[in-house]
Design a protein around this nucleic acid. Structure first.
Lengths: 270, 270
DNA sequence: TTGCTCAGCTTGTTGGTACAAGCTGATGCG
DNA sequence: CGCATCAGCTTGTACCAACAAGCTGAGCAA
C-alpha cells in the first residue's frame, strides 16, 4: 500500500511495460545506436537507479535481462560492460576434407591465418560409448570406444571443445588412435593412409544454453548459447568416427560451401 | 546484521555456493534424473522456500537461473513446468536441391511426413537491401530488393521465420517473384525453368539469444536461443538470392549430408 | 621508488514486505 | 442445468534494508 500511489503517478498511464523492462529496453536501444559502444562501461546501478527513478533492485532486474541475452557482462567490483564479439568463421565443408590440403590440424591453420594465436590441450581416453555416439557409430551401447578430446583456445580465451569417438574395431587397423599424443599428419590423413577413407559425413547442428560443465570449460557467462556440431564420418562400408564439437555461440560462425562456388568470388561475405 | 548469524549457522562451512545456486543445482539434478519429468509441474515457490529454508526471493533467483537456461518455463497463476523438447530435423543439404524432388515447399512436405500439421503466413515486400544482404548479393547497399517473407508454424506453435531477398535485376527475368502469392511449383523450380539455375550455395550458421522482435514472433521464452541460418545461392555467374532463416533453437536441428552416404543406412540417427 | 593498507566505489547475495495479476475449482444464484 | 462470482492458490513486479566481496586509487610507510 505504501508505494502503489507513487507508481501510478509515475506511469501516468503511458506504457504498460513493467519498469524493469523499460530500463532494459532503454539501455538496449542505447547500446544498439552506439551510445554505449562495445567494451564501454555502463553507468553504475545507483546512477541508473536515479536516472530511471527506480529502486536498485528494479534496475538490477533490467540489467539482468540484458546479461541473460548476452548483450552485457557484469563483474563484481567493476560494473557492467557492453559485450563485444569477434566471430571466427569455421568452414565445416573443408574441415577433414582431403581435397583441401591442410597438413595436420585444420583448426590451428585457420586460427593462425586469422592472425590469432591458437593453443590446445589434448587427451585420449578409452571408455564406453555414450548412447548418442553408439547409435551413430552403429555400435552396441556401452561398447568400448576411443575418445580423443581437445580443448581449444584462441589467444588464451576458451573457444571450443571437440570430442571424437572411434569404434573399437578401428583400433586394430589404426592403433595410433588409441595412443596418447598427436598424430602429426592429421588423423584423417593417417586413416586414409591405412586404407580407411572417409568418403562422406553427416553433420547435425543444434544450439542450447550451456550446461554448468560447459559453461565452466568455455568460460561463457550467462546469456551465451553454445553451438553443438555433431559429425559422423563414413567409409564406403560403415561409420568410422563421431565428432562432437561444442562451440561458444558468441565467438563462432560455421559455414558450408556446397556446389559450384565460382560465382562467389573472394571478398564476398567477410 | 540481522540474519547473518543465522546464515552462517545454516551453511556450517560446507558449500561455498550461494544458496540460490544450490536451489538451482538441486532442482536441475532432480530434472536430469527424472524426479521431475518433462512436462511436470515443479513445487510452488512457497513449498520450495520451505524445503530449502530460504526466502521466496532466493528461491525465485534459483528458479530464474533454470528459466534462463531454458530448462523450465513459468507462467503466472500456473507455476513452473519442466520444458519438453521435440526437435524437428531440417535437412539443409536437400533443401532447395532439385535432385531431390519435392514439389513445391520442402518445409511443408517435411512437416507433413513427420505427422505434424504445417501452416504458414506469407508476404512480399520491395525494400532496400540490409547491409548484410547487399554484401552477399554483391549489390549496392540500399539497392532495391524483393523480400519474400514466411512465418512458419507447426501445430500452431511458431517454428521459424524465413526471409529471402532477391536482387532487382532478377525481377526482369522472373517477374512472379515480386508478385504477392505463392509460386506453386517452388521458387527454385520456377527460377530453373526460366534459365536461372542455382548451382551452388554458401551457408552460414550462428546462434544467439533472440532480439525482442524475434522473441515475439517465435514466442520463445527467456533462455531459448535462436539458430540463424543464412544461405546465399549462386547461379554460375552471380548470386541470385539470400535467405535468412531464424529457427527456434529448442525445436530444431539442422543437418547436412555430404559425400557418399551409402554406409549410413536408414535407421541411423533418427 | 616500491609496496602495503585501506577507504570508497562497484556488484552479489539474502532477507523482508506489499500488492498486481493470472488460473482453478467451489459456491451459489437464476 | 448453466453461468457468473469469488476465494484461494499461483507467479509477477516493486520497493526496502543489510551485509559480502571484488576492484581501484589515494596515501602512507619502508
Amino acid at each position: 500500500m505504501y508505494q502503489q500511489v507513487a507508481r501510478v503517478r509515475h506511469d501516468g498511464g503511458m506504457s504498460r511495460q513493467p519498469k524493469y523492462r523499460q530500463v532494459a529496453d532503454a539501455l538496449r536501444r542505447e547500446i544498439d545506436n552506439g551510445t554505449h559502444p562495445p567494451g564501454a562501461r555502463l553507468p553504475s546501478e545507483s546512477e541508473l537507479s536515479e536516472r530511471f527513478e527506480a529502486s536498485r533492485n528494479t534496475v538490477r532486474s533490467g540489467l539482468g535481462l540484458l546479461v541473460s541475452q548476452g548483450l552485457v557482462t557484469s563483474s563484481q567490483g567493476l560494473g557492467y560492460e557492453v559485450a563485444k564479439h569477434e566471430v571466427f568463421e569455421l568452414n565445416a565443408s573443408r574441415f577433414e576434407n582431403l581435397n583441401f590440403e591442410q597438413n595436420g590440424d585444420a583448426y590451428s591453420t585457420d586460427v593462425t591465418n586469422a592472425g590469432r594465436r591458437p593453443h590446445q590441450t589434448f587427451r585420449v581416453e578409452i571408455l564406453p560409448a555414450p548412447a548418442a555416439v553408439a547409435e551413430r557409430l552403429k555400435a552396441e551401447p556401452e561398447s568400448r570406444t576411443v575418445l580423443r578430446f581437445c580443448h581449444r583456445f584462441v589467444d588464451d580465451t576458451p573457444w571450443s571443445t571437440q570430442a571424437t569417438y572411434y569404434p573399437s574395431w578401428l583400433i586394430d587397423e589404426a592403433p595410433r588412435l588409441a595412443e596418447p599424443g598427436d598424430i602429426e599428419e592429421g588423423t584423417t590423413r593417417y586413416l586414409a593412409d591405412r586404407g580407411i577413407e572417409q568418403v562422406g559425413y553427416f553433420d547435425e547442428i543444434s544450439t542450447r544454453m550451456p550446461t554448468p560443465d560447459e559453461a565452466r570449460l568455455l568460460e561463457v557467462g550467462a546469456g551465451v548459447p553454445v553451438l553443438l556440431w555433431m559429425r559422423t564420418g563414413y567409409s564406403a562400408e560403415r561409420p568410422i568416427r563421431c565428432t562432437i564439437t561444442t562451440l561458444r555461440g558468441d565467438l563462432n560462425r560455421m559455414n558450408y560451401e556446397i556446389g559450384d562456388q565460382s560465382a562467389r568470388g573472394e571478398g564476398a561475405p567477410r
